[in-house]
Design a protein around this nucleic acid. Structure first.
Lengths: 339, 339
DNA sequence: TATTAACACGAAACCGTTTTCGTAATATAT
DNA sequence: ATATATTACGAAAACGGTTTCGTGTTAATA
């Protein structure tokens, strides 16, 4: 086992000072040709690499960014992480991932753990419990300490920081409109409780489209599930009693499961009933029939978030100016609707 | 913006030395009751938290573990990360995730980036390019430096380190045997090239089951795709020409897509043709019919890997003894086979 | 009263870098 | 020959902690 070599080791071997070694390795003009060559050769030979921790301590920059998300076993968050990771890596940053598992307490603990020097900034999406509780003090504390934060997807307006969201309202609006254009009359919505910022926005878009049409809103055509967890029974009862001819779902799973249910009843998709979901994941693509979805462009979102964060981290200026980027969703047409 | 407070700040305010503050906060017996109370109260008031980086530098422990995986938009890896994250977090560690994206170079760069003090150990799964190339020098260098490594799922025997795998051979063997017991005669295998350690093991299990039976092996019933990427055309051609009555696939996607193909041809699943895949993901559960799979217990795998790594990191002893844990797969019976 | 022990604290080294500043030795200008 | 500039390097502080060891003050013991 050959342990890592340090500047001190090189200095001792070559009988020069640590400062000289440090400067020589940085090709400083201050050091003579001879010495530089000697030091560099030695360093290369023993594969010297500066210690990241020491450098972090010195310049108070870790080149790490903390990502706190509710769940990782979820296609959307996964793609966001990928986007963040790719972009951050290209700029020399590493990504520390923490999972809140939809728990307020875990979110707080994770942030506290990272906020003590481990990272240069946060990218995060709020846990459902946090949104339900409406308590954002952990975020405020962090921003007050001067640590930059970028909130994505599940955001709150109560914290001053950069934000990246997709226009969920627009996505739902477009999807609902599509149904209307195709002559659907009984358009249902399967969503979750309103405390989730995204569900709220999607419901708004759905309502807007219906209000603008001659159909109007029938509150009983909206099923609000308590969380993103599947509730098979509730969906079954709902679909059987309301018999919609089109269903908009706030995620893939609700949609794919619903499709199964109506298929078992002998309905044809999309002739008798059409479906649109949110999240362009593997499920939509390989479902039978394939599912039309409002694509959220997670990877792009991650990329944009990472760029915003790193730009802020690296900007000297202490501008207290925050922006919210709104990404446009796209309707990915597949076989669950007519086309 | 209230910046973080340091020991020095407290010492200055309270007119004591830094050492006294440090000891007081650790409740050292050396410090008087009075002083301790004073210091602790002050620290609490100003919300003092020690700087992680400084501590890392001092005791040469970062409490970070590096996870290097080929891809994150993949259910299996995602569950492994979750397992790692949960376990590591419970023991006070953070997880730095790096993606090799199946590239050898990225794998090397990522490891080098992390190996210079950023982490206490690695948990990784090899990129396909690394396995294809058979070059493991980056792993050897790291282990020689005394950094513990745990390899999971996609491993190599050429590196001395701890390993965690599931018994892929057994999984494939059991699945194939299931087909045989159910009277299937034309049992196909859709896999990828052998350089992937897992594909190789699965193919071996498939062969073993057939060899033990009266059916024997028909090489033409094995489709080897060049990578984990979907190749719709190749699968279509294969299924049409070979007309199997049972298909074992090395992942979910191949299986679900294959099911679609035969359904379009009017075949009934599982009566005319049965399917079993690997990976118990969201796709299998919500496919139509739902897919029987060999579950790989990714979360368990992550947990076990994390435990092995952290135990090694925290053990003083420099034992040069490595173990390989083999987890048992489970067959999750769903509607794509008779039952 | 002299000696010793216990107590409470501070100085300083250390972890591995970077960077400022001071200075001896040499080179150039006057 | 003297003053000044340049070159090439080292000492030391700093980042924010932990920890060892030394020491002045008081209290207990002989």
């Amino acid at each position: 086992m050959k342990a890592k070599i340090t500047l001190k080791d090189i200095a001792r071997e070559l009988e020069v000072s640590i400062s000289t070694v440090s400067k020589a390795l940085k090709n400083s003009e201050e050091i003579s040709r001879d010495t530089k060559e000697k030091v560099q050769a030695f360093a290369k030979l023993y594969n010297y690499k500066p210690n990241n921790i020491a450098i972090s301590l010195k310049n108070k920059r870790t080149k790490n960014i903390g990502v706190v998300i509710p769940d990782i076993v979820h296609h959307f968050f996964t793609t966001v992480i990928r986007g963040i990771e790719k972009y951050a890596n290209a700029r020399g940053y590493n990504v520390i991932v923490c999972l809140s598992e939809e728990s307020f307490d875990k979110e707080v603990i994770n942030m506290e753990m990272l906020a003590n020097g481990s990272i240069d900034g946060f990218i995060m999406s709020l846990s459902s419990q946090t949104q339900e509780k409406g308590d954002y003090n952990h975020l405020k504390e962090v921003t007050e300490q001067g640590i930059p934060v970028v909130l994505f997807d599940r955001i709150t307006h109560e914290v001053d920081c950069d934000k990246v969201i997709i226009d969920d309202e627009l996505g739902a609006y477009q999807a609902t409109k599509k149904f209307i254009e195709q002559g659907k009359k009984k358009i249902a919505l399967i969503t979750t409780d309103d405390y989730l910022s995204v569900s709220q926005a999607r419901t708004k878009g759905y309502r807007k489209a219906l209000e603008e049409s001659s159909i109007g809103i029938d509150e009983s055509m909206i099923l609000k599930l308590p969380s993103m967890e599947m509730d098979e029974k509730a969906i079954k009862t709902f679909l059987n009693s309301k018999e919609p001819d089109a269903v908009l779902c706030v995620n893939e799973i609700f949609a794919v499961y619903s499709m199964r249910l109506v298929q078992e009843k002998g309905l044809r998709i999309p002739e008798d009933i059409s479906f649109i979901g949110f999240t362009d994941g593997v499920l939509s693509k390989y479902a039978n029939p394939s599912l039309t979805v409002v694509a959220q462009h997670g990877e792009k979102m991650g990329e944009v978030s990472a760029k915003m964060l790193i730009d802020k981290v690296e900007s000297e200026a202490e501008e207290e100016t925050y922006q919210t980027k709104i990404l446009e969703p796209t309707l990915v047409i597949r076989d669950s609707i007519a086309h």
